[in-house]
Nucleic acid binder design. Structure first.
Length: 909
RNA sequence: GCGGGUAUGUUGAAAUUGGUAGACAAGCAAGACUUAGGAUCUUGUGCCCCGUGCGUGUGGGUUCGAGUCCCACUACCCGCACCA
């Protein structure tokens, strides 16, 4: 009987679906383990072989944990709101929901073919009203909360109101509050709510007709679509993520994530400890204190000018009448630039003198105040003290505008460039003279605080998340406007269902503005929708209790599953989803809705699967194609060719002629009768014709081979090109494994007792697989299987005692073939209900140890000794060996090093 | 510029964490079986001047012993980037 993967795979996939084999049920008698994949956005292109990589890795781990007696939660769903479906709708008029459902169906059928152990009863879709009810609910909770920096957590806004009424808070006095009208009260509270409506400079993308969050913009272009993005002041919903910056940073230390990912988040959060200092300024007799932020308080004696951001509110007040025109012209010029231009021109220095002067609080010196775009309004206070000698940006500015440069560190040379390093001994710096920079920073901070000139302050780069999108295909905000005051929709009225609209074409206003009766209690509803990350921020919680319509997740259920034990996904979410989710979770934790303050305890980043593109070389001006080795003899153009008609870099000529009409009469110049294609590693994409579809691999080799091959390709974390060449190896392994059970006509498995040699093969394998799977080192554990199967084949061992444990161990990797064999072995339950075989080290141990014997570190020969031999016995045996004699003639043994079980090294002179 | 990572045969890679470098595959070569093979099975395969030789990006160091540890450098990949 041959290994017929097609019938085996479809048979068991149907069986698992019918029997709900992978259903997860809360069970207090078993330890839980929660394995999560980053759920996909169902794009129109379907899956390529790169997508399932992480899913396979996590599926292996889930199945392994199940064999080890854990109650495993391993769900899957779809991040289904998003731009591509809406843009398709704009082009075709088809409702995004229709497109989305079609794509989901396609994804599901592709996923099902690979044999994942997902509990599909727990599937979530972010675009499902029953799901986004809880996205809206969380938003309402954020709207109804503020961040109390004293308690270090979010609290209900009613507690803030109570406090203001009783004693005022920050700059809001009791009296002000008492006399405020509804609108004013709303405005005051808006400054504190976690979800708030605020005017801010936002990334506006004209091409997409919407605002975008910082992580959705790269190099001044939108990540989706690549349209230019400009800065615009707009009133938008925002989430006060910045309030959590400190906590998001601190608890990173407790997470089992890769260093690089944690570092990325640390950079994104961007903590910097510095000093806020007040400089008094004078402009035509008007005095105005200006607060600046610096991390280099020690350099205050070298301040030769100050700079304001062009967008700073202080600009108007600090512009003298003489400079008014020049400043206005400069600001106009700056505003005209797109974000992209501003980034591209970071090297060119621009700026204008404001006409005002500041007073250095330590020296009393009078310094000019300038305005320049190199100072950012959104960071610190939007104003800086400039120390050109020790800051390269200030230096460039000072050079351009001929401002003085005062060096503050002994022996530093600032004639050509600034000295930015935080090292050396201070000079020209009054009481700081003679200190090291590190000492001076602290001393200066102390001085500033002691003399009431400012205070220590920690700044974060992390900004609040802009939460509004002027789009259709997203969650509607549960907010309506009563006389212009934003009010929350009653929780009982959630979900607020996305209305139908007649056309998806952009008109300049938000699509929901066109919806009929988009009102609540007679008042207009908010017309923006939520961004993509809204629905993905708490989906891992919803999987715990996906059908609950009373709560996001039931308290007791949450206490059982707690948080994700293993999260598998790509690094591309480092500064988006993974920050927002952590924020969202911490917020829910503060209010007591969830029991863990971090959502993802361990995170594994799977690498990307790159494409391996193939090329043909067309001789310019002809329809003749020349093989790789001969192409240098001609003038050629390189053309991407579909990798599916190339095997081992040899072109299938007939398939090539049939591929595209213009190649139908192609001629070839061959080498050795074959056309050899060139190749390159590139991103897997349609346009490069290097996309490999997993369905195709399942058709030709089967899902088990696909799974094994993707894991055998290399470590899960590493990016690697897809190269179908090696796939035969793992396929051969499965066939070999099958042949331990079957030959052409017979069932070979016997109940004979296994020999010690056979048990050794088995137990060595158990030990290896156990260790490797725990470390996600799947490629080496597959190697171990190959070795074991080879050895058993050699021994002609087909004993149940050996093979049955192997079937169980292999089942996480290749679930279909093992399910078939497990049933053939006489079981009528699924292999997933089996237990991982127990590792007995004694059975795996070798009786003898082969010691490599080195002389002065060079290996010369090996010697077999009993495992029990003591180091002294080993040394004696080695000294007595005739081999040793050969290598020491004429020399003396200085010392013999014996590492028990490892090696013997003899030092000779 | 700042931060993180990687570097081993023709290719993907492994190395018990300081102890026989190249496991296991792929590719290639030779052979067997076969009407045939993109099937199956053997065997070989780091390099060379074939030795007590050389060899894990380069140059040093520590050690009886270094792919692994330390120092300096180079190349590539990823992230951030006028963040004061």
């Amino acid at each position: 009987m041959d290994y017929d993967f097609k019938s085996i795979e479809s048979k068991w996939q149907a069986y698992w679906a019918a029997n709900k084999t992978n259903k997860a049920v809360e069970d207090a008698s078993k330890p839980k383990y929660y394995v999560l994949d980053m759920f996909p956005y169902p794009s129109g292109a379907g899956l390529h072989v790169g997508h399932p990589l992480g899913y396979i890795a996590s599926d292996i781990y889930s199945r392994y944990k199940r064999l080890r007696g854990f109650n495993v939660l391993h769900p899957m769903g779809y991040d289904a709101f998003g731009l591509p479906a809406e843009q398709y709708a704009i082009q075709t008029g088809q409702h995004p929901e229709v497109t989305t459902m079609q794509n989901i169906a396609r994804y599901r059928s592709q996923l099902d073919r690979i044999g994942f152990s997902f509990d599909w009863d727990r599937e979530v879709r972010t675009c499902d009203p029953a799901y986004y009810k809880w996205t809206q609910w969380a938003f309402l909770k954020m709207f109804d909360s503020w961040y109390d920096p004293e308690a270090g957590k979010a609290r209900p806004i009613s507690e803030l109101v109570a406090r203001i009424e009783k004693e005022g808070y920050e700059d809001v006095t009791q009296e002000q509050w008492a006399s405020a009208d509804e609108k004013e009260k709303s405005d005051i509270l808006m400054r504190y709510r976690i979800a708030y409506l605020g005017e801010t400079s936002v990334n506006w993308c004209e091409g997409l007709g919407t605002v975008l969050a910082n992580d959705e913009v790269k190099d001044g272009l939108s990540v989706r679509g690549g349209f230019p993005v400009e800065q615009k002041k707009m009133k938008q919903w925002q989430l006060r993520v910045s309030a959590y910056a400190g906590r998001l940073l601190d608890s990173l230390d407790r997470l089992d994530w890769s260093d690089s990912l944690k570092e990325m988040q640390r950079n994104w959060i961007g903590r910097s400890d510095g000093t806020e200092m007040v400089f008094n300024t004078v402009c035509e007799g008007r005095e105005l204190p200006v607060t600046i932020f610096t991390t280099r308080a020690d350099t205050v004696f070298g301040v030769t000018f100050m700079v304001l951001a062009p967008e700073s509110e202080l600009v108007d007040q600090l512009t003298s009448s003489a400079q008014k025109e020049a400043v206005a012209a400069y600001i106009k010029e700056v505003k005209k630039k797109t974000e992209r231009e501003r980034i591209a021109e970071t090297k060119t220095v621009t700026g204008v003198f404001s006409g005002a002067y500041g007073i250095n609080p330590l020296t009393g010196e009078k310094i000019p105040v300038w305005i320049s775009e190199y100072v950012l309004a959104g960071y610190g206070t939007g104003a800086i003290m400039a120390v050109p000698a020790h800051d390269s940006r200030d230096y460039a500015f000072a050079k351009k505008f001929n401002l003085p440069i005062v060096p503050l560190i002994e022996g530093c040379d600032v004639s050509e460039e600034s000295f930015d390093a935080k090292e050396g001994i201070m000079c020209n710096s009054g009481f700081l003279n003679g200190m090291t920079v590190a000492q001076a920073i602290e001393a200066a901070k102390d001085y500033v605080e002691a003399h009431g000139l400012g205070r220590r302050r920690t700044n974060y780069r992390l900004r609040d998340a802009i939460f509004s999108r002027q789009r259709y295909w997203g969650e509607p905000f549960p907010i309506y406007y009563k006389d212009g005051i934003p009010c929350p929709v009653d929780e009982a009225d959630l979900p607020l269902v996305l209305p139908e609209i007649d056309s998806y074409k952009p008109t300049g206003e938000a699509p929901l503005a066109r919806a009929k009766d988009w009102t609540y209690k007679g008042y207009p509803l908010e017309t923006s929708t939520m961004p993509g990350f809204a629905g993905s921020s708490a989906y891992y919680l919803r999987y715990m209790d996906p059908h609950n319509d009373k709560a996001l997740v039931d308290r007791a259920v949450n206490e059982y599953w707690r948080s994700v034990d293993l999260y598998v996904g790509g690094t591309e979410h480092a500064t988006g989803h993974l920050i927002y989710s952590r924020f969202w979770n911490k917020f829910l934790y503060d209010l007591g809705y969830v029991c863990e303050d971090e959502p993802f305890r361990k995170l594994v980043n799977q690498g990307m699967i790159q494409g391996r593109s193939n090329f043909v070389y067309r001789i310019v001006g002809t329809n003749k194609f020349v093989s790789l080795g001969l192409k240098d003899n001609y003038e050629t153009t390189e053309i991407h060719v579909d990798v599916n008609i190339v095997h081992n870099d040899r072109l299938d000529l007939e398939a090539f002629r049939a591929w595209r009409p213009d190649f139908a009469d192609a001629e070839f110049i061959l080498e050795d009768g074959e056309y050899v294609c060139g190749w390159a590693i590139e991103k897997m994409s349609k346009s490069m014709y290097n996309v490999v579809n997993p369905d195709l691999v399942c058709d030709t080799y089967g899902a088990d081979t696909l799974r094994l091959y993707e894991m055998f390709l290399g470590p899960v974390e590493q990016s690697k090109p897809w190269d179908t060449k090696g796939i035969d190896g793992v396929n051969r392994f499965l066939k070999k494994f099958w042949r331990l059970f079957h030959d052409r006509d017979n069932w070979l498995v016997t109940d004979e007792k296994a020999t010690p040699a056979e048990l050794k093969v088995l137990h060595k394998l158990i030990g290896k697989v156990q260790e490797d799977v725990e470390n996600f080192s799947y490629n080496t554990s597959i190697s171990a299987f190959m070795i074991a199967v080879g050895e058993l084949a050699q021994m002609k061992c087909s004993k149940r005692e050996i093979l049955e444990p192997m079937v169980i161990m292999l089942s996480p990797f290749a679930p279909h073939i093992t399910e078939e064999l497990y049933h053939q072995l006489g079981h009528d339950s699924s292999v997933t209900t089996a237990s991982f075989p127990e590792f007995i080290p004694a059975l795996a141990a070798e009786d003898n140890v082969t010691y490599p014997v080195q002389f002065n570190g060079k290996m010369r020969f090996t010697i077999d000794l009993p495992k029990s031999a003591t180091p002294a016995e080993v040394e004696a045996a080695v000294r007595a060996s005739s081999q040793t004699e050969k290598y020491v003639t004429g020399l003396t043994i200085v010392k013999v090093i014996v590492v028990p079980g490892r090696i013997v090294n003899i030092v000779v002179r």
